[in-house]
């Protein structure tokens, strides 16, 4: 049964974990500070109290160990959901993720599946100091065997996390930190599948903005401003980077003939490059202009007092839209 409640994204994720743990005793949650503290972003708030220390527990401070132990637990009948405290703190686990999480099913010809979720708060916009604001999606998206998803709404956060936990494949679940506290009316309960399915967030006829995670609200705001200026922008929210929904994205771009990709990560060799390449390969004859990208610069994530210069903002998105070779300009 679907219930509605006004929740922040962090609360929606918490509800997803609680509901999954209630429904399935094999779901276990662990990581750094996820126990009595409830996680530094409170996503695991109350889980240890409700389900006990066997179901939600603090571990030693070692990310490779956390993911490696999750691999073993997933091999042996559990559905672990582990938290990497921040994007850049997940890097010690990179070898486990790339060499084992992503490959176990393939190595064993499908005999060993790893139903596990690696939750990673990611991206910037919260004034975080260095090592707390990386957009690390390309590393995971480049690795065959992983699903990589990122919600932009609290409702999707709930639905995607439930789906990720139920998935027979490992999922890297990227949570945009700056959206943790945005509240909205959330549908709790069964939702249509979202992994592998992009969604059109706003209809429009002149150009398509393609975004994911933290960049979706930026794209929506840009579309709002453009609308006041007489230009109708469509907004596509990927939700799922892997699997990538070519069908929805290409149908959207064909309908407008122009596109801008918006993403926080550095643009070079990125998910945004992949989107441009894929759409160009498939929609070349529908395009009235080359696809533009508005991304972070190719620099290490800057200090808090510089991040406004680095992050794709509404003005930069609208400038890119203006550059799409309009016939009247």
């Amino acid at each position: 049964m679907t219930r509605h409640e006004k929740l922040s994204m962090a609360q929606a994720l918490n509800r997803a974990l609680r509901d999954a743990m209630t429904d399935d005793p094999s779901v276990v949650v662990f990581g750094e500070d996820v126990g009595p503290l409830g996680g530094v972003f409170r996503v695991t708030d109350g889980l240890t109290a409700e389900f006990g220390e066997d179901r939600c527990f603090d571990t030693p401070l070692a990310e490779s160990g956390i993911v490696g132990v999750a691999v073993g637990m997933a091999m042996n009948g559990m559905r672990p959901v582990v938290e990497m405290q921040f994007d850049a703190f997940a890097y010690p686990a990179f070898e486990q993720i790339v060499s084992h999480v992503a490959k176990m099913r393939n190595r064993t010809r499908g005999q060993v599946a790893l139903p596990m979720v690696i939750r990673i708060p990611y991206a910037g916009g919260i004034g975080g100091v260095e090592h707390h604001c990386d957009s690390s999606e390309a590393y995971y998206a480049h690795t065959p065997g992983l699903h990589v998803v990122t919600p932009s709404t609290a409702t999707d956060a709930y639905g995607l996390l439930r789906e990720a936990i139920a998935s027979p494949d490992p999922v890297v679940f990227l949570e945009p930190k700056k959206l943790y506290w945005s509240k909205e009316e959330v549908e709790l309960g069964p939702q249509p599948p979202a992994i592998g399915r992009a969604v059109v967030r706003r209809e429009g006829t002149d150009a398509t903005l393609i975004a994911y995670g933290p960049s979706v609200p930026v794209a929506l705001e840009a579309a709002e401003v453009a609308d006041r200026e007489g230009r109708s922008l469509q907004v596509v929210d990927l939700r799922s980077i892997v699997p990538f929904d070519d069908e929805t994205v290409c149908a959207a771009v064909r309908s407008t003939g122009r596109a801008v990709v918006v993403a926080e990560a550095a643009g070079f060799a990125s998910v945004s490059s992949e989107i441009v390449a894929r759409v160009t390969e498939r929609c070349f004859h529908s395009l009235a202009a080359p696809i533009r990208r508005v991304t972070g610069f190719d620099i290490p994530y800057p200090p808090p007092k510089y991040e406004h210069l680095h992050l794709p903002g509404v003005d930069r998105v609208l400038d890119a839209v203006d550059d799409l070779q309009w016939e009247d300009s």
Binding site: G68, V71, G72, M75, S99, T108
Partner: peptide
Amino acid sequence: CGWDPYEHRVAPHATPLATQLPHAVGVAHA
């Protein structure tokens, strides 16, 4: 990996050194 790891409860050969050790802990803990 040529064998079914569940048949005899033998994990696949691990080539990247020591990476199998946390898995062993996870299997035991589960």
